[in-house]
C-alpha cells in the first residue's frame, strides 16, 4: 500500500513537468500581456518605458529561459509576482485558497447530507410516492444550470428577503479570531454552499438509487435474508455497504472537481476564492497567477485520482493495490 502510494507520487513528477511545459506554452501563446493592457490607460507609460520595464521583468528573454526561471521559482515555492496586484502570487492565493477550500468542503458535505438520505429512501422504497418525489427533484436539479440556480438563490435570499449577505466571505467590520468573525464567515458561506450543494446532489442520488435497486435483488442479499438477518440490517450491512462503493470511489474526484466548479459560485456570489481570482486574472492577462492556478488544479487532479484509488481499495477488499 505504502509502496503503491509512493510509486504513484513518483509518477506524478513527470506528469507535472509535462503539465508545466504545456501551461507555460499556452500562457505565452495567449494574445496580449498584462503591461500592454495598461499602456493605453496610463498616461505615464510610453513605448520606451514599456520596453524597459519588460526587459527588467525578463519578459523579453527567450521562452526557455523564462520557463526554467519560472520552474525554479515553483520548486522554491515562489510562484512569481502578480503584475496586476503587485504582490507575490503565493500571498495572493493564501487567503483565497482557504476560502475556496472552505466553500468546497461545505458544498461537498451539504451535498452528501442531502443526497444520501434521499438516495437511500428512493432506492429502498422504489416506486413509492417518496421515490417519485425524489426522482422529480432530481429531474429539476439536473435540468437547472448552476449559475442560473445560484443567481436565483442570490436574488431571492440575498436581495429580496435580505437574509444573507450578497457578496464577500466575511464582514470586514468584525475582528479576526472572534466568535462573531466565525459566525460572519458561516453566514457568508450558507447561500453559495447551498446553491452548489443542491445542484451537485443529482449525480449522487442517481448513483445511489440505481445501485441500491441493483444490489437489493442480488443473491447475497437473499443469503442474508435466509440467515434471518433483520430487514434493517439487511440494508445497512449488506445492501448499502455495497451500494456506497461507487460513491466512495468518486469522492476523490469530487473534491477536485468542486474546487474547479467553484468558479461559477465564487463569481456569482462575489466570494473571494481562487475561482474568482482565476476568471479575473485571465481577463487581465495576469499570467503568473493563471499559470500558478492551473498548476495547482493539475496537481489537485492527480492527488484526487490517487485519493480515489486509495479510498476504493480501502472500502473494497476485491481491489488490492500493490
Amino acid at each position: 500500500m505504502l509502496k503503491f502510494i509512493l510509486r504513484r507520487i513518483l509518477i506524478m513528477i513527470p506528469q507535472l513537468i509535462i503539465l508545466s511545459v504545456l501551461i507555460f506554452a499556452l500562457a505565452k501563446a495567449m494574445p496580449g500581456d498584462a503591461l500592454t493592457g495598461q499602456l493605453a490607460s496610463s498616461p505615464k507609460m510610453d513605448a520606451q518605458t514599456l520596453h524597459e520595464l519588460k526587459q527588467k521583468l525578463g519578459m523579453l528573454d527567450p521562452p526557455y529561459v523564462q520557463y526554467f526561471r519560472w520552474l525554479k521559482g515553483l520548486l522554491h515555492g515562489d510562484m512569481g509576482m502578480s503584475i496586476i496586484h503587485q504582490t507575490p502570487v503565493t500571498q495572493l492565493l493564501a487567503g483565497r485558497m482557504e476560502n475556496t477550500i472552505l466553500l468546497s468542503a461545505a458544498v461537498l458535505i451539504l451535498s452528501y447530507l442531502i443526497a444520501i438520505p434521499l438516495g437511500i429512501v428512493s432506492g429502498r422504497w422504489t416506486d413509492s410516492w417518496a421515490d417519485k418525489m425524489v426522482v422529480g427533484y432530481n429531474y429539476i436539479t439536473f435540468a437547472t444550470p448552476l449559475f442560473i440556480f445560484a443567481l436565483l438563490m442570490l436574488f431571492i435570499f440575498g436581495f429580496v428577503l435580505g437574509w444573507f449577505p450578497t457578496s464577500g466571505s466575511v464582514d470586514i467590520r468584525v475582528e479576526n479570531g472572534t466568535f462573531s468573525y466565525f459566525m460572519s464567515k458561516v453566514n457568508h458561506l450558507i447561500l453559495p454552499a447551498f446553491s452548489g450543494a443542491i445542484i451537485s446532489t443529482t449525480v449522487t442520488i442517481q448513483y445511489l438509487r440505481t445501485e441500491i435497486i441493483d444490489t437489493k435483488i442480488k443473491d447475497f442479499v437473499k443469503t442474508a435474508r435466509a440467515k434471518g438477518v433483520s430487514e434493517s440490517n439487511v440494508y445497512t450491512r449488506h445492501i448499502l455497504r455495497n451500494s456506497f462503493l461507487p460513491i466512495a470511489a468518486f469522492l476523490g474526484y469530487d473534491i477536485v472537481s468542486l474546487i474547479g466548479g467553484s468558479v461559477f459560485l465564487e463569481s456569482i456570489y462575489g466570494y473571494p476564492g481562487i475561482g474568482q481570482l482565476f476568471i479575473t486574472s485571465i481577463a487581465q492577462r495576469d499570467f503568473s497567477v493563471v499559470t500558478a492556478l492551473v498548476m495547482i488544479s493539475g496537481l489537485a487532479t492527480l492527488v484526487g485520482t490517487l485519493l480515489s484509488d486509495i479510498i476504493l481499495s480501502a472500502v473494497d477488499p476485491r481491489i488490492r493495490i500493490e
Partner: peptide, 15 residues
C-alpha cells in the same frame, strides 16, 4: 437453512 445455486454471487463480497 438455505444453500443457493451460485457460490460466486451468494456471498457478500465486502464481508
Amino acid at each position: 437453512g438455505m444453500i443457493f445455486q451460485d457460490p460466486l454471487t451468494a456471498l457478500n463480497p465486502l464481508m
